[in-house]
Nucleic acid binder design. Structure first.
Lengths: 369, 369
DNA sequence: GTGAAAGCGCTAACAT
DNA sequence: ATGTTAGCGCTTTCAC
C-alpha cells in the first residue's frame, strides 16, 4: 500500500552528475562568487537534472545556519508555569519528545486568529521564501513557553526570531538582549530595549486623521483611544491631540477602549453621552471604529453627515463597515517583510547595529469621513 | 558588542552529567518505556541540570524524523511559472540559497489573512507543540511552488504536510498519493483522492439552519450559496434543500455568491428583487450573511423581524454583525488539531489506512434568527 | 580554484 | 538493559 519514497538526491549525487567534488558544488551553491562559469553552469545543470533539494538537517548541522526563522506570537507570560508531575518533566520532556509525548496541554490561545497576524505571516513568509528560508510558527503564552523559545533558539534550531507581542507587558523581548540571539520585533517594545524593530509612524498617522477630519469641516472632534499602557495607543492619542492643538483645538475629549469592537461601541456611547454634539471621531483602530459606527447608527446619527469617523489600520474590518471606513493604513505586509529582512541581515552580519524602521502610514479615504 | 552565545549542551553533555552513555540517554528521552527508574531519574536530572534541548538538525539527520510539519496554504497553481533568467535558476537556485539569493519576488499573497487560516494555525500549533513538534508555514500559489513543496517534503525537511486548499482546482493534493509522502487535508478534496482529511458535516449544518428558520416560523426561505465548484458549497446547498424538502418545502430559491461580503450583498439584492417576500435566508458563510444583513438594512427590512438570517462558520464576522449573527459553527480549531493528530499518527504508523474525520456542526443562536 | 577529510548532534544497528 | 559504533548530508578547514 504505502509506497516507499525513493531517497532524494544528495549533494554527492549532484557532484557526481556534475563531475565535481561535493565541496565544489557546495561552494557554488552557497554563492561563493568567483567560480569558473563553466563550473557554475555544470552545477546548475546537475542540480536541475537530479532535482536536488538541500537537506535542512545536513546544512544546519554542518554550517551553523538552519534557514529557519521562528515567528513568535508572544503573550503576557503571566499564566502560572504549570505543575511538574511524574510524567511531565517540564522543559526537558517537552523539548525532548518529538511525537512521543502525552501532555494535558489544556492551555489557551486564539492568538493567530487576529487577521492582523495573517498579514504579518504573509509578509514574513513571502519574503523568507525568496531567500530559501522558512518560518516556524510558535506561540509563547506562559513563562515556560518563553523559556522554551529561548532554549530552542539557543540550541540553534532556528537562526533568529521575529517577535510579535500581543501584550504590553510581554516579558519575552527583554530576555533576548545579552543572549547573542537574533531577534526583530514588530512594533516598538513597551519599554526601551536594545532590539531592532519595525513600526508605523503612529503620531503621523493620527495627525493624518486629525487633518482629514478638520478639513472636511468637523469642529467638535473626539477620539476613542486604545489601552494606555500600549505604546501604539499612546502615540496615536498624542499624535492626534498634537495635530488638533496645532490647528487650534487644544482640547480633545477622549475615551479609552481596548481595541475590540465591543469596546468601541461602548466608548462611543460614553462619548455621545458626554459630548452629544461631536461631529468627528477618530478611533485608534478599525475594530473600535466599526463599533462606534454601530453605536452611531443605533442613536440615529448619520455617518459621515452628522458624525465623521476615521479608523486606523485598514484591516478587513474597514471594508466590512457600512459606510466603509476611512482609515489610516498601516502597511503591515511591507513592515513584516522589512522586519524579516532586518533579521536576515543581522544573521548574516551580526555586527550590524540595532535599528528601527518606521513606516509612513497613509490615509485611505472611503465613505465614513 | 554582540555576545557570543555559549554553545548549548549536547546529548553527550547530558550523558556525562548522568554518568550514562549517549545512547541510553537518547533512548530514555525518546520514550523507550522499560527502563530502570533510577536511570530515568538520572536522565531527568541531567537534562534539567544542563538545560539540554535537542538539536532538530542532529535528530533529523540521524533518525528520519524532523519533528517539523509543513502547514501548506495551497492555491490554484494556475499562475504561470515565471521566467528563468541568468541569475534565477528556478527550483535549483531557490532551493539552494538559504539567505544568499536575490529574486524579483513579485508574486502574490493575502492567503494567510483569512481569519479562518488563523484558527487553523491555532489548532495545529497548539496540538503540535504538545508533541514537541512545530509547523513550518508555506504557501504554494504557483505550479513551481507546488513542486517545491513536494521536493521539500521528499527531501525529508518535514515529516508530512497539512494541506489547506484555497481553491477548488488546487492541483497539489493530487500530487501526493503515490509519493509515499504523508499529508492530511483540511476539507474534502474537490475530486476524490486517496488522502486523509477532516471536514465538517456540511449537509447536517445546513439542515440545522433550515430547521431553525422553519421553527421560528419562516415560510418563504431562500439561500445564498457559495461557488458551486466547491464541494462545501454544494453540500451546504444540498443539505439545506433536502432539509427544507423534508419539511414540505420542495422549492428553495438560491443565488450563488463567492464567500465574500460584497457577493453576499449583491446576492441578497438579487434575491429580494426576485422574491420580495422572503422571510428567511441561509447564507453559506458568515461573510455573505453579513453582506445580506447590509442589503436588508438598506432596503429597510428588519432582521430578524421581517427576514431572519443564518450564516455558517461562526467566524469573527458573526460577532461583528448587527444584529449578531445566528450561525452554524464549524469547530475549526478542533478540526485542525485532529487533522494534525491524524498526520502524526500516520507518520508514526505509516500502514494506517486513509481516513476521514467528519465533525458535527452546532447551531449558535444569536440575534439574526 | 578545487578536492579530501573531519566533524556537526543525533539515532539505530550492533555488540555485549 | 546499556555501551559502542557507524553513519545521516552538509560545510569547512586544510592541503594541493
Amino acid at each position: 500500500m504505502s509506497e516507499l519514497l525513493q531517497p532524494s538526491p544528495t549533494l554527492e549525487d549532484v557532484a557526481r552528475a556534475a563531475g565535481l567534488s561535493r565541496s565544489t558544488v557546495s561552494r557554488v551553491l552557497n554563492g561563493s562568487r568567483d567560480f569558473d562559469p563553466a563550473v557554475r553552469e555544470a552545477v546548475r545543470r546537475a542540480v536541475a537534472a537530479t532535482g536536488y533539494v538541500p537537506s535542512v538537517a545536513g546544512r544546519s548541522l554542518a554550517g551553523r545556519r538552519t534557514g529557519m526563522v521562528a515567528l513568535v506570537l508572544s503573550g503576557a507570560g503571566d499564566t502560572p508555569v504549570y505543575e511538574t508531575s511524574a510524567n511531565d518533566t517540564a522543559v526537558g520532556d517537552r523539548a525532548t519528545d518529538a511525537y512521543g509525548a502525552e501532555d494535558d496541554g489544556s492551555r489557551r490561545r486564539a492568538v493567530f486568529s487576529d487577521p492582523f497576524f495573517g498579514r504579518v505571516a504573509d509578509g514574513v513568509t513571502s519574503f523568507l521564501r525568496r531567500q530559501g528560508a522558512h518560518p516556524i510558527l510558535m506561540s509563547a503564552e506562559t513563562a515556560e513557553d518563553h523559556q522554551y523559545v529561548l532554549a530552542y533558539l539557543r540550541r540553534g534550531n532556528a537562526d533568529g526570531a521575529l517577535l510579535v507581542s500581543t501584550h504590553a507587558d510581554d516579558p519575552l523581548p527583554a530576555l533576548i538582549p545579552g543572549t547573542g540571539l537574533h531577534a526583530v520585533m514588530y512594533a516598538r517594545p513597551a519599554r526601551p530595549l536594545p532590539l531592532s524593530y519595525v513600526d508605523v509612524a503612529h503620531r503621523e498617522g493620527a495627525a493624518l486623521a486629525a487633518e482629514h477630519l478638520l478639513a472636511r469641516g468637523c469642529r467638535r472632534v473626539a477620539t476613542i483611544c486604545g489601552p494606555l499602557d500600549v505604546p501604539a495607543s499612546r502615540d496615536r492619542l498624542a499624535g492626534f491631540q498634537e495635530a488638533m492643538a496645532r490647528r487650534g483645538h487644544p482640547y480633545v475629549p477622549f475615551v479609552a477602549g481596548n481595541f475590540t469592537l465591543d469596546s468601541g461601541e461602548a466608548a462611543a456611547r460614553r462619548l455621545l453621552a458626554e459630548f452629544p454634539d461631536v461631529d468627528g471621531v477618530f478611533a485608534a483602530n478599525d475594530l473600535m471604529a466599526q463599533g462606534a459606527l454601530l453605536t452611531l447608527r443605533d442613536q440615529g446619527r448619520r455617518v459621515p453627515g452628522d458624525v465623521a469617523v476615521v479608523g486606523f489600520d485598514d484591516s478587513s474590518a474597514a471594508l466590512a463597515c457600512r459606510p466603509m471606513l476611512t482609515t489610516v493604513r498601516q502597511p503591515v505586509e511591507e513592515m513584516a517583510a522589512e522586519m524579516t529582512r532586518m533579521l536576515l541581515d543581522r544573521i548574516r552580519t551580526p555586527e550590524l547595529p540595532i535599528a528601527a524602521r518606521i513606516f509612513d502610514p497613509v490615509l485611505v479615504v472611503r465613505q465614513s469621513a
